[in-house]
């Protein structure tokens, strides 16, 4: 029975068989234009790949604030340690280089390509072409590369010139010329020996009493960098409800990026102080904010965390998960 069931898909495949390729080994099937069109999402600096449609700086502002600002900041300055998108001009040759879209990126096409393929972080490839044009235009506007009248489309976008384009050159290594010397190769009197600052890295796996073992991801880099060592997690056992158990998977893919580190005013999961006033409002209010989005004094909650492919139940389950871990 099992065996014959397995055969069915095989027979179906053979019955509806695709055109066999005519390469030297005759392996594989012809990739049809329809198949390719769905996956061929890449954009090049010359504009190859840019789709029809257009977007504006004005439309981009609202989209950016709803979908991007919670991580990248309202003005592209970057929330917490998420990447800054704007600023940093004139810093690349200083001791504190800030590599942003405006100060560093050589091509505007990269912006369109990357936003479309990988952003928002929790909902990749969810933006329409028009949304991508608008958000790209707005990020260029935040960097003073286009003005507020800019309309982005295939023609205008490919013409955008980035200020740092000329400052890239192809790898010219090997650049160092060490010699295979064996005797008196260095002057020990000139040695300056710099040691490691203790407490910066986890060493609990080989040193006793030295802090936490680095066998899990704490997800709170700011706390770690402030105190020098990461904090040990509270091991209290929490028994999750069925709803919250279902919500954990959603949380891991859609919510934790903000609610683990606690960026953009997002209450950190497990931070009882941050959650208590929120939980007091009742689950209906919390679920409503999570599903429809919320702008509070502390920060922004994008609707469904910016991932519109989630169902309302997904979001409700994820909220249950966070609440049960945080009270």
């Amino acid at each position: 029975m099992f065996r014959s069931l397995k055969l069915i898909p095989l027979l179906l495949t053979m019955a509806f068989s695709v055109i066999v390729s005519a390469g030297p080994l005759g392996i594989g099937s012809v990739a049809t234009p329809e198949m390719i069109a769905g996956w061929d999402i890449d954009i090049r600096p010359d504009g190859t790949g840019l789709p029809d449609g257009e977007g504006t700086v004005a439309a981009g502002e609202g989209l950016y604030e709803a979908k991007c600002a919670s991580c990248h900041g309202l003005f592209g300055e970057g929330e917490g340690r998420w990447p800054a998108l704007a600023g940093g001009e004139g810093t690349l040759d200083t001791l504190h280089p800030e590599k942003t879209v405006g100060s560093y990126w050589p091509y505007a096409s990269t912006l369109w390509d990357y936003i479309h393929r990988a952003m928002p972080y929790t909902a990749p490839q969810s933006l329409t072409d028009a949304e991508t044009y608008s958000i790209s235009a707005y990020v260029l506007y935040l960097n003073d590369i286009v003005d507020d009248e800019f309309v982005a489309n295939r023609e205008t976008f490919a013409r955008v010139k980035m200020p740092n384009e000329e400052n890239f050159y192809v790898d010219n290594r090997p650049d160092s010329k060490n010699e295979r010397c064996f005797e008196n190769c260095a002057d020990p009197k000139a040695f300056e020996i710099v040691t490691t600052i203790n407490g910066l890295t986890p060493t609990g796996h080989f040193k006793e009493d030295s802090g936490v073992a680095a066998n899990h991801y704490d997800g709170n880099p700011s706390a770690a960098s402030e105190s020098g060592i990461s904090k040990e997690k509270n091991d209290t056992k929490i028994v999750l409800s069925d709803k919250a158990t279902l919500g954990k998977g959603v949380y891991d893919t859609a919510c934790q990026a903000c609610h683990n580190p606690g960026i953009a005013g997002a209450p950190r999961t497990g931070d009882k102080t941050a959650w208590v006033s929120r939980i007091d409002q009742g689950m209906d209010v919390l679920n409503g904010h999570a599903i429809n989005g919320y702008q509070g004094a502390d920060g922004v909650m994008p609707a469904k965390g910016g991932n519109m492919s989630l169902s309302n139940d997904d979001v409700i389950n994820a909220v249950a998960f966070m609440v049960e871990l945080s009270r």
């Binding site: 998420w82 796996h205 066998n215 880099p221 683990n260």
Partner: peptide, 17 residues
């Protein structure tokens, strides 16, 4: 005790780390 390990403060999120 063979384990991958990380330095949590290196990156902001485990899915891009």
């Amino acid at each position: 005790d063979l384990q991958r390990r990380t330095v949590p403060w290196l990156t902001v999120d485990a899915a891009s780390s």
